[in-house]
Design a protein around this nucleic acid. Sequence first.
DNA 1: TTATTGTTTAGAGCTATTCTAATCTATTGA
DNA 2: TCAATAGATTAGAATAGCTCTAAACAATAA
Lengths: 140, 140
Amino acid sequence: MSARPFANAIELLRAAGLRPTRQRLALARLLFDKGDRHVTAEQIHGEAQAASVPVSLATVYNTLHQFIAAGLLREVVVNSGRSYFDTNVSDHHHFFFENSGRLVDIPGDHVAVTSLPAPPAGTAIRRVDVIIRVEPAAGE
Amino acid sequence: MSARPFANAIELLRAAGLRPTRQRLALARLLFDKGDRHVTAEQIHGEAQAASVPVSLATVYNTLHQFIAAGLLREVVVNSGRSYFDTNVSDHHHFFFENSGRLVDIPGDHVAVTSLPAPPAGTAIRRVDVIIRVEPAAGE
DNA sequence: TTATTGTTTAGAGCTATTCTAATCTATTGA
DNA sequence: TCAATAGATTAGAATAGCTCTAAACAATAA
């Protein structure tokens, strides 16, 4: 029932209408074969290189955006100048460690946003992002 | 009691330990003399030019960051690659219009985040950001 | 005043990301 | 199976937003 793990990432790509190329298969496996991850483009590019998969940074960006469009990935913006890609596309929020730049999931039901205001006239809510910014506690 | 409007921005700067220079005075007035604003660096730079105040973009960035450090301004990150500076430093959240890139304040008491999870061990919560991303309603 | 310290500036530099146009590859149809 | 074609990948240039540098300048203190 659960969509993952994908014994073959090929199905995943086909379902998204993407040709299962060498690069996309490798990136899909790096992203989805080890649980929930928060990665930057540079990061998976590095991992792909380390795994001897020849893939350019341009392709990494293309692929990440295609995965987002297909609903396989979600972009999290916490600081300008760098995007994180989150493999957990279920309803949830984030802790952001301001000193290390690390991002950690908070299950959706652990943060309740009650009394949401009505969206401005003519608009619909697309998503609600809650980011809890934390820093080392005083005296650590 | 309210800190604004500042008949003279000079006091504001002095209180922040910043020399009241021509550039800083002009920027303070552009920022704080007309209610709550969400501006980008390029934007106030443009406004300053339009007002014939000679100020470089580097100074605009320096000044914005000094104002943030002084608690006069707050940075809001909604999309990578661009920062917004919010003159409203009271507790509140935001609507973000994904198509136009516009940001609108939501008073703090119009969004209640209940059951905040405990911060990870060794950390303290610095701030909680709630961003409600809206888009034009279907059929508009 | 002058000395000192803080501020501003132009322009170079940097980082993350996107674009371009050429090459390559998966798929399709014969 | 093989060619045709639509789609994918690539290196490298380009861009955007922001920061840095080191020299000129301006506010304050003495």
